[in-house]
Design a protein around this nucleic acid. Structure first.
Lengths: 418, 418
DNA sequence: ACAGTTTCCCGTAAATGC
DNA sequence: TGCATTTACGGGAAACTG
């Protein structure tokens, strides 16, 4: 199990993780033990080649990394060893090049069989994974995992990020929707994806499918903003996961709407109609915009400053909507939010989601009154037996091949689907 | 320097600290080096005794703990070595007894002199200190440091907490006031201390001086509350440090007033007169109570639920006072807080302390409206030379004694005054 | 079982490295 | 010098351990 249970294949240095090595074939009942060692593969090329180059960044396993595969460790019909409390640390004396956080590396494992299988060397490896040193790198690391799995079928394409291939918008948008359905319980509809596509690619999306670069997706900042497209999207995903889950799952958050579209949708609606959208200017923010008619009959739009995780952890979003008040010139506070777009009465939509006491009767506002008018794994077995001269070969070549092909190394029991 | 710069003599395991060993005498210019080693003293009795017992809890220094005292390290006219990045860890294989967090222990240091002073052994030690494993133990640890320093002049009374002596209320109250003046910039006045004394001791305080036990001060819970007296007081100190410093320093927080006293003070005052007091039921909370007259002419007292660090970090306290509104039956919100007790107009008192925009004109309340009607070193040198048979004594006995008496060990440059 | 302690690790801030 | 990355550690919560 990697450090973040929800995000496999990402390991943070200094934080414990778990891995399991399995022998996929049922062996004849012989009385021997397998000594298994888990190591971090610091070499550039594939396993089993006759020579290798050390990578520019190297890691090692700090903790106990050898275990004996016990006959009693049968689980699901195969021999396995689980390594717990493994911890990764970077080697500090490597040549100066500090790579980016998207470096893909391999966790390898080797088996020595004794006494009967003595001198037979077996090796397997995990899927490529990302090493980070701080949770602040988790979004970037996850972007790498997604991009890799979207564009490579090879289980061990370690040079992938040297020249990452592009993704078509149809591929990418499907994956983005998948992220929302996996982590937030509800995916993205066509309108939401269209807005995202336009944000990422401009009007190009509408003119057929388009190729998106890795850089545009996760490295370059959105023009005029201090964050990349994925950083922005991930901040919203996190906001939903932590503070908006029920509202999101009820499909009450339109979320991804441009301000132009927002106005177009609201302008012909009943006064007091509102919709919820994510902030495009700040990371992890959600606002509401409502329509009203001024005395002269003009249509007016009002928005509130985005609510971020800090404000939402003080009061759940549904309660904010219920308790939101505008103090009109008459001095009487009133809630301007009447209908969730297109025309659902507010309490009908949010009623079940209210948490704390509603405000009524004599009330004390113990909180500020602000002036604000505008919105400012798939499991993969890979083995590479090395032929070593064995003085007394304990198995036939056929038996050996079979054994080699069924030694499996999972970094997590959770499968990883893309 | 210990882990918490403001609270010396408390070291948290796994967190870096700094210490300095100084040779207080100016040595004749000889060409030798002193190798100094810092260790954690895990023995029961004083330095230099012929035998010792291991303590039930033992710690050791994880990191590099030897350094050579260089001739060039002269600072303030004496030889010194500074140890940085020291880290403490508990020995895990000791006998089962887990002691409490108030264990006092010693950091020791020994010097080997070579080549001229070869075979001469010198040793010094720090003041007693407290080891904790989590910042949640900091208040308890600090209570120990205070109690020790209040009641012992001995620099190394390690058995003190086996049977801690009592403190007189006059001693203790002086120290409590000192804590507030040190950490919050303003001490406690007689009325505040009287309230604290009564809380701790009942009416006994008024009948002359009284002895307070260590247990009553920091171990036993306040009757009916899930926290001790010091836990409660420290939570308030922390609240002031983080969120109330300017208001506290302007002396606008009466703070320590019983509810009875509060009512007695307010009842004859102008309606809208209010005062600020700390919550006695919750840790780290502050409320305000104001007086008003009901239609029938009765005096009424209203309080708000205590503000805690979470709410105060959303909006500073002065702004809360400015923006606080009661929505009367007429529906018009109004601020009931008019005069800070005894009769200071609110804005006159808090005007300078307001931070954000005041609320006026058309206002949006983006925050909840709650229904709430009631308050529901000194530097110490200690050396114990051991006489070792030296084949070629490089110094006269007099010189040696002088050297021994002037080897000093500070755990911090910050002096510690009680 | 429970209560006092410790461990774990996120998330912010500061330090470091290139 | 500035940005990318790591380290430091407070703080909340889970895990531990007698």
């Amino acid at each position: 199990m990697p450090t973040h249970p929800q995000k496999p294949l990402i390991i943070k240095t200094g934080v414990q993780f778990t891995t399991k090595v399995r022998l996929l074939v049922k062996l004849p009942e012989v009385d021997y033990q397998l000594k298994v060692k888990t190591t971090f593969d610091n070499f550039e090329n594939t396993l089993g080649a006759s020579f290798s180059l050390l990578r520019s960044r190297q890691f090692f396993i700090l903790t106990n990394n050898t275990k004996v595969m016990d006959i009693e460790d049968y689980s699901n019909g195969c021999l396995s060893v689980e390594f717990r409390h493994l911890q990764l640390k970077e080697k500090k004396y490597t040549n100066g090049t500090k790579g980016n956080e998207a470096v893909f590396v391999l966790l390898g494992s080797s088996c020595f069989c004794s006494p009967m299988l003595h001198n037979v060397f077996l090796q397997t490896c995990s899927l490529p994974l990302v090493v980070i040193s701080n949770v602040s790198q988790l979004p970037g690391g996850w972007a790498s995992v997604m991009w890799y799995n979207l564009l490579t079928d090879e289980p061990r394409n370690l040079g992938f990020f040297g020249n990452p291939t592009r993704a078509s918008w149809s591929q990418l948008s499907e994956m983005l929707s998948w992220q929302f359905s996996t982590f937030a319980g509800r995916g993205l509809n066509k309108e939401q994806l269209d807005m995202l596509g336009e944000k990422l690619l401009g009007q190009l999306v509408s003119c057929g499918d388009y190729q998106v670069s890795w850089s545009k997706f996760a490295k370059e900042n959105i023009p005029g903003k201090p964050f990349s497209f994925w950083m922005w999207l991930d901040s919203i995903l996190e906001l939903i996961k932590k503070h908006l889950l029920p509202v999101w799952n009820e499909n009450y958050i339109m979320g991804f709407v441009s301000k132009e579209m927002e106005r177009a949708l609201l302008k012909d609606r009943e006064p007091g109609t509102f919709l919820l959208r994510f902030s495009e200017s700040h990371l992890g923010g959600i606002t509401f915009t409502w329509v009203e008619h001024s005395d002269s009959g003009d249509v007016k739009f009002n928005s509130v400053e985005p609510y971020t995780k800090n404000r939402l952890s003080a009061l759940p979003f549904a309660d904010i909507i219920r308790d939101y008040k505008v103090i009109s010139n008459g001095g009487v506070p009133e809630n301007p939010l009447k209908f969730l777009y297109p025309d659902i009465p507010k309490d009908e939509a949010f009623g079940r989601l209210y948490n704390s006491q509603p405000s009524k009767g004599k009330m004390l506002t113990s909180d500020p009154i602000a002036l604000s008018l505008s919105d400012s794994s798939r499991s993969e077995a890979s083995t590479t037996p090395r032929s070593c001269p064995s003085p007394e070969p304990p198995m036939t070549p056929g038996e050996f091949d079979m054994l080699s092909e069924h030694l499996c190394f999972d970094i997590d029991t959770v499968s990883f689907l893309f």
